[in-house]
Amino acid sequence: MTTTKKPPASRRRSPGPVPVAPPCGTCDGTGETTTTVRVGRKRREIGAIQTGLCPDCFGTGTA
């Protein structure tokens, strides 16, 4: 009767660090950009600010 030894079980490794994409430079990672509203013939600025999706990252916040 021959006996065969099993190889030692391999140890489980924890996953390495997940690479993180750098934040977008235009929106600083928020996904939104702001634009000051200009009105009138002289194009004066008013207090209202419009927000919209960032055109560089399309709202994802990562480059």
Score class of each variant (00 low, 15 high):
48 A>P: 00
54 C>T: 02
25 G>R: 13
56 D>K: 15
16 G>C: 03
7 P>H: 02
8 P>H: 02
38 R>E: 09
11 R>I: 12
41 R>A: 14
20 V>C: 06
19 P>A: 07
32 E>I: 06
44 R>L: 09
20 V>N: 01
11 R>N: 10
4 T>H: 09
58 F>I: 07
62 T>E: 11
47 G>R: 15
37 V>H: 03
20 V>W: 03
63 A>W: 02
14 S>M: 09
29 G>R: 04
19 P>F: 00
23 P>T: 06
52 G>W: 00
4 T>N: 09
5 K>Q: 08
20 V>S: 09
3 T>Q: 04
61 G>I: 05
7 P>S: 12
35 T>D: 10
48 A>S: 08
51 T>E: 07
60 T>N: 05
34 T>D: 06
17 P>G: 08
40 G>F: 01
60 T>E: 00
50 Q>F: 09
12 R>C: 05
32 E>V: 09
57 C>M: 01
52 G>I: 03
42 K>P: 01
28 D>R: 14
44 R>W: 05
41 R>N: 10
23 P>E: 04
46 I>M: 10
22 P>R: 13
34 T>L: 09
37 V>R: 13
26 T>I: 11
8 P>M: 08
42 K>R: 14
17 P>K: 14
10 S>P: 12
53 L>W: 01
55 P>E: 06
50 Q>N: 13
49 I>S: 13
34 T>Q: 15
30 T>F: 00
48 A>F: 09
38 R>C: 07
38 R>H: 14
29 G>T: 03
32 E>Q: 12
12 R>E: 10
16 G>L: 01
49 I>K: 15
21 A>P: 05
29 G>Y: 02
52 G>Q: 14
27 C>W: 03
57 C>E: 05
10 S>V: 13
20 V>F: 06
30 T>G: 03
8 P>G: 03
8 P>V: 06
33 T>V: 15
47 G>S: 14
1 M>A: 14
28 D>C: 08
58 F>Q: 15
24 C>A: 02
12 R>M: 08
46 I>D: 01
43 R>M: 08
39 V>D: 04
61 G>N: 07
18 V>Y: 07
2 T>A: 12
60 T>S: 12
44 R>S: 07
57 C>W: 03
7 P>W: 00
13 R>Y: 07
58 F>T: 11
29 G>W: 00
29 G>L: 02
4 T>V: 11
9 A>P: 11
1 M>N: 11
47 G>V: 07
30 T>E: 06
39 V>P: 04
60 T>H: 03
38 R>W: 01
8 P>E: 06
36 T>V: 15
46 I>P: 07
58 F>R: 15
48 A>H: 03
33 T>R: 12
55 P>K: 04
63 A>V: 11
7 P>T: 08
47 G>N: 10
37 V>Q: 05
3 T>I: 12
25 G>C: 07
28 D>Q: 14
22 P>M: 04
34 T>W: 04
27 C>F: 02
57 C>N: 03
29 G>D: 01
18 V>A: 12
5 K>L: 13
34 T>Y: 06
26 T>H: 13
29 G>K: 00
38 R>A: 11
51 T>A: 09
16 G>P: 10
